[in-house]
């Protein structure tokens, strides 16, 4: 498979997982959450600084339909992580050995 096509498929898989499949994820508390609640670790938990974020708790504020709200939040999250992560990775990547810049024919 060509690299570009592979990248497109990889992105599509992530978008489908976050945008569609996430609706069917288990809503039970996760391991840490369950242990914290059962054992009393969570007694002094503070509410989240960003709890009023328009995407808090993986939903889009103002979108009533749960499936749409969660799916949109997931797709936005995939996009934000891709742009932020991809930007950092692109910035720190190894560059090919510099080729001497061609001398411009004339100044602009």
């Amino acid at each position: 498979m060509r690299t570009k096509r592979f990248f497109a498929v990889f992105l599509l898989v992530s978008l489908v997982l976050a945008g569609i499949v996430s609706y069917y994820a288990s809503s039970s508390p996760d391991g840490l959450e369950k242990v914290a609640a059962d054992k009393g670790i969570a007694a002094k938990e503070k509410s989240h600084t960003m709890k009023d974020s328009p995407l808090a708790d993986y939903g889009v504020k103002g979108v009533g339909d749960g499936r749409l709200s969660g799916g949109l939040a997931g797709v936005i999250g995939v996009g934000v992580v891709l742009v932020l992560g991809g930007g950092v990775f692109w910035a720190v990547r190894r560059r090919p050995a510099p080729v001497p810049a061609p001398v411009p024919a004339k100044d602009a």
Binding site: F10, S14, L17, S26, G77, V83, G85, G87
Partner: peptide, 15 residues
């Protein structure tokens, strides 16, 4: 690597 990070974000939504 950017796509891998995005995949991990998506997969972390799937409890």
């Amino acid at each position: 690597a950017g796509l891998t990070a995005a995949f991990i974000f998506a997969a972390q939504m799937l409890n």
